[in-house]
Amino acid sequence: MFKIKAEEYSCPVEALSNILGKKWVATIIWTLQKEEKRFGQLQREIDGCTKKMLSQQLDLLMEQGIVENEKVISGNTIESKYYLSETGLSLLPIVEQMIEWGNNHLTCD
């Protein structure tokens, strides 16, 4: 049994589809592929994603061990950076294949 938040799935494909199918999740994963980013950087790079939605999706990705958050205290400030975990990095080929499939088989107006 696979559990995401309060929902349970008997199929791992369905569970992963539930994660990757959420708005902005694949974009967040793709944006974090090469380097860690601060929250504000992510929000600027993901045009149209609200602060609330980005926060919710990052929380989901951290709960699933896909994204990690590192906090560094420097004087009176806390710098928080997000990056893909090993699990998150292993999703990159899947997201890349989704992009390739979409480019080859879907039409955009």
Results as ranks from 00 to 15, higher is better:
Pro93Gly: 00
Leu89Ser: 09
Val72Gly: 05
Leu92Ser: 00
Ile29Lys: 02
Glu7Met: 14
Thr107Leu: 12
Trp24Lys: 01
Lys5Asn: 14
Leu91Gln: 01
Ile78His: 07
Ile19Thr: 00
Asn69Thr: 13
Thr27Ile: 07
Met53Ser: 15
Thr107Pro: 09
Leu58Ile: 03
Leu89Asn: 12
Glu8Val: 08
Leu84Pro: 01
Glu8Thr: 09
Ile66Gln: 00
Met1Ala: 13
Ser80Trp: 02
Ser55Ala: 09
Glu79Gln: 13
Ser17Asn: 14
Asn18Gly: 11
Glu63Tyr: 12
Lys34Asp: 11
Met62Val: 11
Thr50Ala: 08
Ile94Glu: 00
Ile4Asp: 01
Leu60Ile: 02
Met98Asn: 06
Gln41Met: 06
Ser17Thr: 13
Lys5Leu: 15
Lys23Ser: 08
Asn76Met: 10
Glu96Lys: 14
Glu100Leu: 14
Thr107His: 13
Gln64Leu: 11
Asn104Cys: 09
Pro12Ser: 15
Lys51Phe: 07
Glu86Trp: 03
Lys34Ile: 04
Gly48Ile: 04
Leu84Met: 04
Leu42Tyr: 01
Glu7Phe: 11
Met98Val: 05
Arg38Ala: 09
Phe2Thr: 01
Asp109Arg: 10
Leu32Pro: 03
Glu79Ser: 13
Glu35Pro: 05
Gln33Val: 02
Cys108Ala: 15
Glu79Ala: 10
Gly48Leu: 05
Trp101His: 14
Leu20Lys: 01
Asn18Ile: 08
Gln33Trp: 03
Lys22Arg: 11
Cys108Ser: 12
Phe39Glu: 09
Glu35His: 07
Lys81Asp: 04
Ile99Tyr: 09
Ile46Pro: 01
Leu60Glu: 06
Glu70Asn: 09
Thr77His: 12
Arg44Tyr: 07
Gly65Cys: 04
Ser17Ile: 06
Leu54Gln: 02
Glu36Lys: 08
Gln64Pro: 10
Ile66Cys: 02
Ser80Asp: 12
Lys3Gln: 15
Glu63Leu: 12
Ser80Arg: 13
Thr31Glu: 15
Asn104Leu: 11
Met53Gly: 09
Leu91Cys: 00
Lys34Ser: 10
Lys37Ala: 07
Phe2Leu: 12
Gly65Val: 05
Lys34Gln: 14
Gln57Cys: 05
Ile99Thr: 10
Gln56Ile: 10
Phe39Asp: 06
Leu106Asp: 04
Gln43Tyr: 03
